[in-house]
């Protein structure tokens, strides 16, 4: 991928990711999250991860964001009123986040492999879903079964949680 496209999509993802936590209206936050995930899907495609890019759009921008928007509209949340801000807690949270970012920057800046560019692929990646499927059903068969149980438990749990109390 050309550096130009990389910077376009990286900036798109980061700006809208920041908009998620800056917006006071939850609907605007959810829509910013969709754009941020679309930028991330483009970055996945730039790394030759076609399958991951596609399920990123399908699962996140499709299913999960619809769930978020549905809940926001179901609960009828308005833009929050400005409350009294706890300045000490906010400054502490911001300081911890900035320290984390500085730590990540220093680790990336000091490592040698981070300066290398990506090696060229000698094999086509258009069959990546085939290779992932083989891995998933051979090496990772047990985790794949377990993840099915996780989804089942989550489904049953959601039904139990959202059932109205009958008295």
């Amino acid at each position: 991928m050309s550096p130009f496209l990389f910077w376009i999509f990286a900036m798109l993802m980061l700006v809208f990711g920041a908009a998620v936590i800056i917006n006071r209206n939850p609907v605007a936050s959810a829509l910013s999250l969709v754009v941020s995930f679309l930028g991330l899907a483009a970055l996945f495609l730039s790394l030759d991860a076609y399958f991951i890019g596609v399920i990123q759009v399908l699962v996140y921008a499709g299913a999960i964001m619809v769930l978020f928007l549905f809940i926001i509209m179901l609960l009828d949340l308005r833009a929050e009123k400005l409350r009294k801000i706890n300045w000490i807690a906010s400054a502490g949270g911001l300081a911890v986040a900035l320290a984390l970012m500085l730590q990540i920057f220093s680790v990336v800046g000091r490592s040698n492999i981070a300066k290398q560019s990506f090696p060229t692929l000698t094999r086509s990646t258009s069959d990546d879903i085939h290779r992932i499927g083989l891995l998933l059903f051979n090496s990772y068969n047990l985790p794949f079964q377990v993840i099915g149980v996780v989804i089942l438990v989550a489904t049953v749990g959601v039904v139990v949680l959202s059932r109205r109390e009958s008295r």
């Binding site: 991928m1 998620v20 970055l43 949270g93 990540i104 981070a114």
Partner: peptide
């Protein structure tokens, strides 16, 4: 574009989420 670029972008995104 090097590996460090992707890792830096990933780190910034993580920090945004953490904040």
């Amino acid at each position: 574009v090097s590996l460090g670029h992707y890792l830096t972008v990933s780190g910034i995104l993580f920090t945004i989420g953490f904040a």
